[in-house]
Design a protein around this nucleic acid. Structure first.
Ligand code: NAD
Ligand code: NAD
Lengths: 224, 224
DNA sequence: TTTTAATAAAGAAATATTTCTTTATTAAGA
DNA sequence: TCTTAATAAAGAAATATTTCTTTATTAAAA
């Protein structure tokens, strides 16, 4: 009852938010082709999404298209970047500089999307006090000390599953606002801590289920 | 109208499928503690999910719990593994042996979850005809030839965004049934091809949005 | 200038998913 | 044995999300 109104006000569906980076990525390629306008049916055709879904998604951002023409590419890109906060840089610490952690450190797109990884932590003595991709790596015991020097909003967890909760507790105690959890294990945390789980295993579960079942899903455009 | 019935028959919600690997992962830790039974409220407490959600999820798998006791841990694990097809091994080729591709190759859990990566492909002459983690790496031009020798169901795309569609087309032509796309760009494909997009950028979008907005989501337990 | 066709917008409807409510069951304790 | 409290089950209700339908707008073609 109270929630209903609140939601009507903020209003944007979670799946819409998840689609926005894909729109952004696609629109950049359009802009490179110097196309001033892009229409929902054109995007729909490329992205295999229902065109009315796209219009609806954009309408949550209060972008208006022009009948018979579409949207102004550059405006669309700018509004997406503003909404997604690409211009507001958030600092992050990453814990677990193994296979996946190293890949994340080298993922340059985070920088464009407004996240700056400013330090890495591990327990492996071989890599402590070295650098990966120009990022300084410290022992996990220095986490609190380093976050006191330069506070960060986001903690990225890329340690083995059985270590994840411990690292999460440390992050929470140290004052991070959001935890990005790649460990594949769910985390316990107070309500005011933002938790985002990226579970690669869920993706495999979907693939194997779809390979096994031969039934199509009912919603046609389930991209994410 | 037709769909409604079909769905009632197959019936399992997509978010449920995505949660199953997390349950599985958690239950393994319970089994290690030699706990014969586990109740929905106990799982709920650890995983921060509504207990009735958990009961509902399990009921889709036709697992019955026992009043006042819960579920038999080992049975639950077995049924999850069966449903998720962990015992049926699917072969996969991976294309793009860069930062992320290398991490995926070294991710041992895929093996337990019934996916076997049997060859890797790239264009970088320095790595072609070498091995990573005991996996043979070939030039992308040999993709068709290799898939003819040993057919695979799954193609994993981990190349830069502007190369992704080209690789997808090659995979489709070569007869893969499912494409797992990590490139961050949506792919066009015929309806009979299964596409699963794992977009790390969507995760960051959610985090940044939550950091910016201070409104909680309405569904309490949105883990994925 | 008039007509046509392509498009966005807005809202209704359909569908999906979660959460709440009630009931039945049963292990454990009185 | 009887009572109590914990639990699962089932279904109703609430909420979220997608898809469909209708309408209005307008660029381009006739
Ligand atoms: N590799 C992948 O492609 C992949 C995919 C999906 C999920 N994951 C998950 O990501 C996590 C890491 O995977 P990985 O393949 O990079 O493993 P990894 O073993 O290569 O890396 C883990 C790193 O964490 C460090 N570490 C361990 N305990 C620590 C602690 N208490 N404090 C700080 N650092 C610690 C280790 O020294 C190591 O460097 C795992 O939970 C895994 O399930 C990995
Ligand atoms: N690194 C990450 O953490 C990360 C995270 C999310 C998404 N991604 C996405 O995954 C993809 C790969 O990222 P990365 O960081 O591993 O990049 P990378 O540059 O390290 O690896 C890309 C690899 O693809 C190979 N390649 C390029 N064109 C090819 C072609 N036509 N055929 C075969 N191989 C080809 C390159 O030689 C290289 O080895 C990108 O689309 C990126 O956006 C990466």
């Amino acid at each position: 009852m109270k929630n209903t109104k609140d939601n009507k006000a903020s209003g944007i569906p979670v799946p819409t938010i998840r689609r926005l980076p894909l729109y952004h990525s696609f629109l950049l390629t359009i802009k490179n082709k110097e196309r001033k306008y892009i229409s929902a049916p054109d995007i729909a055709n490329e992205l295999q999404i229902d065109p009315t879904q796209i219009i609806k998604d954009f309408s949550y951002l209060n972008v208006k298209g022009k009948t018979k023409v579409g949207y102004v590419t550059s405006v669309l890109i700018k509004i997406l970047e503003e909404f997604l906060g690409y211009h507001i840089s958030r600092k992050a610490f990453i814990v677990g500089i193994g296979n996946l952690g190293s890949a994340l450190i080298k993922y340059h797109r985070f920088h464009n999307e407004g996240m700056e990884i400013t330090a890495g932590f591990d327990i492996n003595p071989e890599i402590i006090n070295t650098k990966t991709n120009n990022l300084k790596l410290f022992h996990i015991d220095q986490f609190q000390e380093k976050i006191n020097e330069t506070p960060v909003d986001i903690g990225i967890i890329v340690v083995p599953a059985d270590q994840a909760q411990k690292i999460a507790d440390l992050m929470i105690k140290s004052g991070v606002k959001a935890i990005w959890n790649f460990s594949g294990t769910p985390l316990s945390a107070p309500d005011n801590i933002i938790i985002e789980n990226t579970s690669i295993d869920s993706g495999l579960a979907m693939i194997k289920w779809k390979l096994h079942e031969n039934k199509p899903l009912i919603y046609k455009n389930r991209m994410l």
